[in-house]
Nucleic acid binder design. Structure first.
Lengths: 140, 140
DNA sequence: ATCCTATATTGGACATCATCTAAGTCAAGA
DNA sequence: TCTTGACTTAGATGATGTCCAATATAGGAT
């Protein structure tokens, strides 16, 4: 993620303590925090950071294509996925909301026949799998 | 949709004017209203119906498996899809939010290899295509 | 090293979507 | 027709996200 900060600086992004802390929080594999979770983790490193800055910065990272915004059925809050580099999809636990990145063996775009496009110019597709993670098992 | 009311009555569902009106609003092809849209359309037929009843009834219909709750990236409010009978996916216009039901030529479940399941018991999958509808064209 | 200014941050108000509550109302079986 | 448990209601409350005016600051210019 440190290269992320480098890249952004190259784009004229002003590097502030708040933005650096948020980028640090987003560093890692299978990271899919909500804005509030990012804020809580950022506060642990920089107590005076505001919620507005977290929303602002996440929004900018999304606009810059460095972070993906992810919405799931049932889940109320959006989640933020720093793995914007390689295309992937998600597997979500309907018990605890845990999310894993998954990679498909076929391109889902190919599953939509021409006759089902209703004149749309189709530009993207998201695939989300739902199930129970090992911890949640078959409990309700 | 009248058979829906029959089915629900068979399940001990108490048939009230509010519920009947909501079921009527949800009748049709490619219907994907938000709760507020359902409320507005229901008010046109039954002026004193409350928002709470709309939320209650939609929640019950979802729990009974008669209506699907649909969330899309960017779209803030959940939408409700009465086409719960035949499996399908969605195509969403990123301009106006219009949504069409689409049917895929391959089962998306097959695209997730065993090695990408992380011990989850996978039970479902949603696929959502994004693009521009003919009315919105390529305008921003 | 210091200054300058465009840009970023902040707290709190506001907006939207959804849920909850307690009191009143009603569908439908006895 | 009566009774009752389920349904509806208005409005409060909660969760999430956006906006704003005032203040602070990064980083280039001096």
């Amino acid at each position: 993620m440190s290269d992320l900060l480098e890249r952004l600086r190259g784009r004229g992004w002003r590097l502030t303590a708040q933005r650096r802390v948020i980028a640090e929080v987003l560093d890692g594999e299978h990271v899919h925090y909500t804005a509030d979770e990012v804020h809580a983790l950022a506060v642990a490193r920089l107590p005076e950071i505001s919620r507005a800055s977290v929303y602002n910065t996440l929004g900018e990272l999304v606009a810059l294509g460095e972070v993906l915004e992810v919405t799931t059925e049932g889940g109320r809050a959006k989640r933020y996925d720093p793995n914007a580099h390689r295309p992937h999809q998600h597997l979500v636990c309907s018990g605890c909301g845990t999310m894993r990145d998954v990679h498909l063996v076929t391109d889902p775009m190919g599953a939509l026949p021409e006759g089902e496009r209703f004149g749309f110019t189709v530009s993207g597709v998201t695939v989300t799998y739902y199930g129970r993670c090992p911890e949640c098992g078959s409990r309700a």
